[in-house]
Design a protein around this nucleic acid. Structure first.
Lengths: 136, 136
DNA sequence: CTTGACCTTCCCATGATGGGAACCCTTATA
DNA sequence: TATAAGGGTTCCCATCATGGGAAGGTCAAG
């Protein structure tokens, strides 16, 4: 299997496969005589693991740790779980931040006429003026 | 007011103030004889506008547009509102993605013993094995 | 007059990804 | 069998917003 086929089989772009190899996330595969990378099904499996971890929002660094644990048959599941729960916490923090932005923006958008006139509470807020809540 | 004071007054780092100037988001301020940037209260006001927009998650590009509208006394508030609602939609998409990650991870973490044993559904999932939901 | 706290510019790094050039290899088809 | 299409290879550059740090000029307080 060459890199294009491995890419199709895993959803990881050839570009990223080479990148993961260059930073040491995955091992360098064997090469053909003409210098093409050749991937075994084991290596494809590893790529799928990486893809899934990235899809779940783990950083490349966290993914490297998880890969290490995956390959360590002696690992304690507690270690994996703690990485996962830490990641969940980070995601939830991020979600809360975004939700707070949305909340503020919705309030502002709700107070804005959205018409031809220049009067605009959204800009007033950005400019630091306190907003007068529309009666509700 | 020099750049450090402007930074303190707005919460935008001196580094970022220079950057915003370099990309044309804000105008280059006057300089002293010794080449120090000098900020007027108007310019500080603009910096605060930028800071607020960035805090609300607008990109620098969107912020530039909003700044332009702010300074255009003839703008239609509808234009501002449409940028805001577009941004809200983008944030909500992002939130939904993160929530979906959290949901999956919570499920996996919930199924994981988190003990000394190597058995770990989180890794099994990353490796592509279907997970057996713990009875609930 | 020295010291320390500013300021200036310039370059480099981040994280994860894509774009593209220049060049080599393989495979199918005319 | 010659050629073209569609791989592969390396290498460099760009993104977005931000920070770090070096080398050097300036200002204010002691």
């Amino acid at each position: 299997m060459n890199i294009g086929q491995a890419s199709n089989a895993t959803g990881v772009s050839a570009k990223m496969i080479r990148y993961y190899e260059s930073i040491g996330l995955i091992r360098a595969p064997l090469r053909t005589e003409s210098n093409y990378r050749v991937y075994s099904s084991d290596e494809v499996h590893t790529l799928r693991f990486v893809k899934r971890a990235r899809t779940l929002g783990f950083s490349v660094e966290e993914t490297a740790t998880l890969l290490g644990l995956w390959q360590d048959k002696e690992r304690a599941s507690a270690e994996v779980k703690s990485i996962a729960t830490g990641h969940i916490a980070a995601l939830e923090t991020k979600i809360a931040e975004l939700q707070s932005m949305v909340k503020t923006l919705k309030h502002l958008a709700n107070c804005c006429g959205g018409d031809d006139r220049p009067n605009c509470p959204i800009l007033d807020d950005l400019a630091g003026e306190t907003i007068k809540t529309k009666g509700h």
